[in-house]
Write a protein that binds this DNA or RNA. Structure first.
Lengths: 207, 207
DNA sequence: CCGTAAACGCAACTGGAGTTCCGTTATGAG
DNA sequence: CTCATAACGGAACTCCAGTTGCGTTTACGG
């Protein structure tokens, strides 16, 4: 008697269904870049994707839903982490990766859109959280190697270090509007390194 | 021959005009809190404010416009800065001020809404930038006093220090979705202090 | 207190976002 | 290859956000 309603696209995910999905995600990225999150709607995306708008409403339901799916797609091709031989070098690499992403004419607007979507929609927020957990796990070995080298104390929390590097750059992008330039990236990395070395991010540190 | 078009509300800013403005801003804040930036529109705000929707369209034009004005209003009642006698104490006070703001059932959602508006609308972005410049100027004396006490080197940039404290907290709120708890606030303040003391935010520091 | 015009607000209109219905295409199991 | 049905797409519909026109209220200068 239970009525099962599987999400459209989950039972027959191949062929046309897959083509439609990739067309919609590509169209959404394009629309986000040249109009911004606040100025697009599903008919807009459907037109660009050359797909029936009914389909987009049925499978994604809202712009935020499409963005959440787009984000899941982006998470799958994760950037490789650095391995420069020192924590300072690795953190600088991370900071500059973030900076370059923001400066990129494609990915910059996309990231702002994704953050905007996350503030409006729980599903998008969840997708964004997953994305950053994945990213943090990817870079965790850098901190582990630094611990082995004795650059940071045992018990240093990798996620905290990454947060300290990323935070100021995101703050610039989203809050103050100041440019996220190379100098800002260097400072963020250097500050995080200094704090990590001092044991600020170590759980076994002074209470 | 030049056609002047003053913004509505600028020529006769008193009496009814002022009442309408405060009613609209109050209604907008209420709507933002219990529906979120992505789910409100101007007719919604006009209904809550018991004001003609024509008026709201004429004076503010869009939800982002209302949010920008709301932000300007919020900036005017600026929080007082701390003066605990040590930079560590002052930065911790700042971090906890931010944390309490995010946790506040009124201001928390409001801040997320404001950031979302800034990603969608240039005017809102500009208003947000002004807000943070004001906030940074307000707290700048803390760093100045720290320099006099010899806690940080000369040439330490106050805005950079504030950015280092605030950034990780905003990153949690907007990107990872991890809770902005007291421990996170303490870490952010401690990390910024460590980096500042090491001269990372000093313009005269090692090149 | 009066008069001008700034600002408001009602009502009627319009365009398009979001929904529903149903016929068509084509996936994937057998 | 065949068939059941998942998924798509056109078309028609509804509803309301956003706009316009115009009459009413009222701030504020004199």
């Amino acid at each position: 008697m239970s009525v099962e309603l599987p999400e459209p696209g989950t039972v027959r995910p191949g062929g046309r269904t897959a083509r439609v999905r990739s067309a919609v995600l590509r169209a959404a990225a394009e629309a986000l870049v040249d109009r911004g999150f606040g100025r697009i709607d599903l008919p807009d995306i459907a037109r660009r994707a050359e797909v029936g708008k009914t389909t987009v409403y049925r499978r994604w339901g809202s712009v935020a839903g499409v963005v959440a799916d787009l984000l899941a797609e982006m998470a799958s091709d994760s950037e490789p982490r650095a391995d420069t031989g020192s924590l300072g070098g690795d953190l600088a690499a991370l900071a500059h990766l973030i900076r370059r992403t923001f400066a990129d004419p494609l990915h910059g607007p996309l990231f702002k859109a994704v953050i905007a979507a996350a503030t409006c929609d729980a599903e998008a927020a969840e997708a964004l959280g997953r994305f950053y957990r994945t990213r943090a796990a990817e870079w965790e070995p850098c901190i582990e190697r630094a611990r082995e080298r004795g650059e940071v104390p045992a018990g240093t929390d990798a996620a905290e270090v990454i947060e300290a590097v990323s935070g100021p750059l995101y703050y610039r992008l989203l809050a103050t509007g100041k440019p996220v330039d190379p100098a800002a990236a260097d400072r963020a990395a250097a500050a995080a390194l200094e704090a990590a070395a001092a044991g600020i991010f170590s759980s076994t540190a002074e209470g």
